[in-house]
Amino acid sequence: MSTADQNHIPPELLEEAACGHLAPERHAAVEAHCAVCPQCRAAYDMELRIARGTRSWARAALKARIAARVGSPRSTPIPWTQIVAAAAVVLVIAGTGIVYQWLRVSPEPSATTVISAGSADSLIAPDAAPVARELADARTKETAPPPITLKGAVAEEQSAGQAKRESETFALAPAAAPDARDEAPTPVPETPQAADPLPKNAASEFIVWGNIIGADETKDKAVRTLEIFAGEAAVETRGAQMQGARKTGTQISTRFTVDQEVILGMYRRDADSRPGQIPARVSRAGDTVRIVLLLDSLLPDDVIRAATVLTFPPDSLQIRVPGKVIGIRTPTGFLP
């Protein structure tokens, strides 16, 4: 072995350095040696690549498993280099001792572990109190939703169409789906404001009132087009597809059975936004069909377009179109 070989850093030490397991002074010594030893520099760089690349691969794999579990369609992740740096900020925040548990101040400061060098410093926030307050604000709003009313062009449009729609009555055709045939219709409240027959879950439900604005009946199915409003924006659309059919164009197949789960499609206002499937439940309240969307957020710009396929037991239910949107309320506080 040559003198030069004997002066090289052992691979195990390079590995420990790449994993961040060395004390600062030893780590600095490794770096200093690599600065003057191209062979060790190359070996160290390879160790760094493997260590960081393997961690990155593992994170991506875990993220993919989470996405699969929750049914998320996203496939173009934010680069992990950004994410790791952002995480460092949170850990630094945790170390300030000002982190709240919701609104409660933690009595003792905690040790800080900065997980990433470099950009982490640029992301350090002075304290975490604003974060906790911001989050607490969001939670508070969830429990005390502001009332939402429709305004402007939407309301005017509704008023214009009201006279025609108010008198319409749809007699629904026999059901097509065997499971729907077996379902008894759900007891209907006297008015839309009556007690909610659906389970309340303030964390995940938005209660939306909508109108049936069209009908298309065939021998074995009854199709209703529904318009639903979110905030001040509203778009009316219609579609008529058999239950279980796929979305085509701007139409989304949905499946309605009273008090059964329903899938609606939601579009955001921007044209290139992809629709997501929203679990929902529907019930009849007086002469209005009530849709309960199980959403995680609903913003003023959201537009929900739904084409509905209604299947009810034969001769058991009629729906009269009320011709106006009664209102929309949300427990989230996201709406103005």
Partner: peptide, 24 residues
């Protein structure tokens, strides 16, 4: 073992998410 449970998990996730999004 580097998670300091000094704040609710929700606070940690919210702060982390916000920083991720800011950086993005």
């Amino acid at each position: 073992g580097r998670y300091e449970h000094t704040a609710a998990i929700g606070t940690f996730l919210y702060a982390t998410a916000r920083n991720i999004w800011l950086r993005h």
